[in-house]
């Protein structure tokens, strides 16, 4: 009996239309699997093809760079092979007079963003959900999504103008209450709050989309049941809506923690100035200056790798804690 005949017989025996004791019907698990795989691939081929560009993108731009991160342990050479130097660049990095200040700034700004910016889209989504007039709701949604489409260059210009001590609208308003004009953009005590507020202003509306979509997916019968039990609006938010979007909140929180070390390069570089650079200089801006502008590519890679390892540790920790507390995680 040829291999094909054997396989067919095996399949037939597996699916039960051939007596098990028929000649050649001995069970061949591997052949069955092979055929099933072939059928599956043929069935799903168009989808695999559609998936291919995405997979390729991740391989080229996300996985290949992980391999290239070995540059952190090498001296970059244009001609010939790079020279292996071990931890030399990490030594330079950690020995830099400003590295710990830059690291502290990154942690503080990221912490402030998690603490003050992360909850805002949830609140916004809850509020939008409570607006009963659909026209008003659409208008509010459009208005708060808009800042997301502005670049940080434009936003920085808006904030510098609005916060100007001589002609800014904010100081004009505070002036009505007898307060002296303040240079928020040059004040070391204010600038981190400017960073947090500008991030909130830009992203709160757009980020609320995911939560709003999660709210829409909650079974309306739950609200009906709650109403029958005498729940008011607040009760329904607290006992139905929030638990309904808890998995989304948990997932996004873990993902945000994973991006903890990305304190916002575009934002910082545009809002920064010499007066307050020591307050908001983050790892990304430092890497840009030292690495790209000064051509210290290995040093920049070492800083990037350090940031990546911390980010990885944070995401694993957040996932583990979330799993234990809520049973939800990202994998």
């Amino acid at each position: 009996m040829s291999l094909d005949e054997k396989s067919v017989a095996a399949v037939a025996s597996r699916f039960g239309n051939v007596p098990k004791d028929a000649p050649g019907a001995e069970f061949d698990e591997r052949a069955v699997r092979r055929m099933q795989r072939g059928v599956k691939v043929r069935t799903w081929l168009p989808y695999y093809l559609m998936l291919a560009p995405g997979v390729l993108y991740f391989l080229v731009f996300h996985y290949y760079p992980i391999y290239l991160a070995k540059l952190a342990f090498e001296d970059f050479r244009i001609f010939g092979d790079n020279l292996w130097v071990g931890l030399k660049h990490f030594g330079v990095l950690f020995g830099s007079p400003v590295f710990y200040q830059v690291l502290a700034n990154t942690l503080i700004i990221s912490g402030m963003k998690i603490l003050f910016v992360f909850p805002v889209p949830i609140v916004v989504a809850l509020f939008i959900n409570e607006v009963r007039n659909s026209n008003l709701r659409r208008f509010i949604q459009s208005a708060i999504y808009l800042p997301h489409f502005l670049s940080w260059v434009v936003i920085a210009g808006i904030f510098i103008a609005a916060l100007s001590p001589s002609s800014g609208v904010v100081n004009e308003i505070t002036g009505w209450f007898g307060l002296a004009p303040k240079g928020f953009m040059t004040d070391s005590g204010s600038i981190r709050w400017v960073v947090v507020f500008s991030e909130m202003w830009r992203s709160a509306g757009w980020d609320s989309l995911l939560y709003f979509a999660a709210i829409m997916a909650i079974d309306p019968q739950l609200y009906d049941a709650a109403e029958m039990d005498g729940a008011n609006r607040w009760h329904k938010i607290w006992h139905v809506t929030l638990p309904g979007i808890a998995p989304t909140i948990a997932t996004l929180f873990i993902l945000n923690v994973g991006l903890f070390m990305n304190a916002g390069f575009d934002q910082i570089i545009n809002l920064s100035n010499d007066a307050i650079r020591d307050q908001i200089d983050i790892i990304d801006t430092y890497v840009y200056r030292i690495g790209l502008q000064s051509g210290q590519f290995s040093l920049a890679t070492a800083a990037g790798l350090f940031k990546g390892v911390i980010g990885m540790a944070l995401i694993v920790a957040a996932h583990t804690i979330s799993k234990r507390l809520t049973g939800k995680g990202v994998w």
Binding site: L93, G95, V98, D274, R277, Y286, R289, L299
Partner: peptide, 24 residues
């Protein structure tokens, strides 16, 4: 030399920030 890049950057930024604090 390349190995002074981090010091040059740190000293420059410290100077620039300090100048504004004096001037203002």
């Amino acid at each position: 030399p390349a190995e002074y890049a981090a010091d040059v950057d740190a000293a420059e930024n410290y100077y620039r920030t300090s100048v504004y604090r004096f001037v203002s």
